[in-house]
Amino acid sequence: MNKEMLFTMNTAFRDEYSIYGYTYGKGAKAACIVGAMRGNEYQQIYICSLLSKRLAELESQGDIVSGKEIMIIPSLNYSSMNAGRKYWLSDDSDINRSFPGNPEGPATSRIAASLLERIKEYSYGIQFPSFYLQGEFISHVRMIRTGHESTNLANLFGLPYVLTSDSRSFDHATLNYNWQMEGTEAFSIYSGGTERIDEKSAGVAVSAVLRFLTRMGIIKYNCHGGYISTVMNEEDMVNIKAYDAGFFHKLVGINREVKRGQVLAEIIDPMDGKVLSEVIAPTNGIVFFVQDSPMVFQNVIIYKLIRKIHK
């Protein structure tokens, strides 16, 4: 393992701030893995730490294929993690809204530009981002439809689902989109939540990445074959919204098969404890996403269902 400084800058109050990449194997730039970009992405940096440990073991056993290099960048924004903030400390900007970046612009834009310049050389890019809806997902690979995305390759992670989605306005400034534009095969992997460590989901993500690297001929690793992924459009999912605001009492979690009319959760009045409404499944299907805050606003998406599918 080599530790490489990818970006460094002076700060006004905290000495030098540097971003590091950890490389395993030597040779062609095969795969790059990016973890936390925001200060609340604990699950994302945790998955990277597990992967680093495993890749170091594989490297010491000679199981990284000769002439292949893998880089892991566990965190781009660890100062925010230290300070308990989500975004860049000095100006609240979001690195994952700063791509492709500008080498003469503000700090997050410089980080984005510098990083993209370095990591666009890799054939495969894997990112562990957090989603704009806070909650728990079935582990999946998510791809923005750019015309460059390859769902066939995404299948090789062996996760239960590969999700494609139309790009939203802010997607154009994300790493995944710009990585794809630069010619890297880029994948976003969601496994577990964001602000809490989920060991089981982290393990699923690690296995998926190692499976993919094996199948692409980058590492030698015997692993379970995983799933033959179901490819879905995000727009085909059924969103279930909260019709009331209050405590969210979850009755059904992710990856559960549900029947039309089944009660999935209750919304409870925080003042008097009365059940304001029941959250009802509008279709048969599987719970793909459930929000994980103790309370919800009215109108927020609290569940996403994969309609009319069985486990």
């Binding site: 802010f170 969103n239 927020v300 998406i301």
Partner: peptide, 21 residues
């Protein structure tokens, strides 16, 4: 809460979360 930039959410969505709605 979500810390989302509201001026990225237009045209919004009738079935979206609070900001999009």
């Amino acid at each position: 809460g979500s810390q989302i930039d509201m001026n990225e959410l237009f045209p919004g969505s009738q079935s979206g979360a609070m900001g999009e709605y």
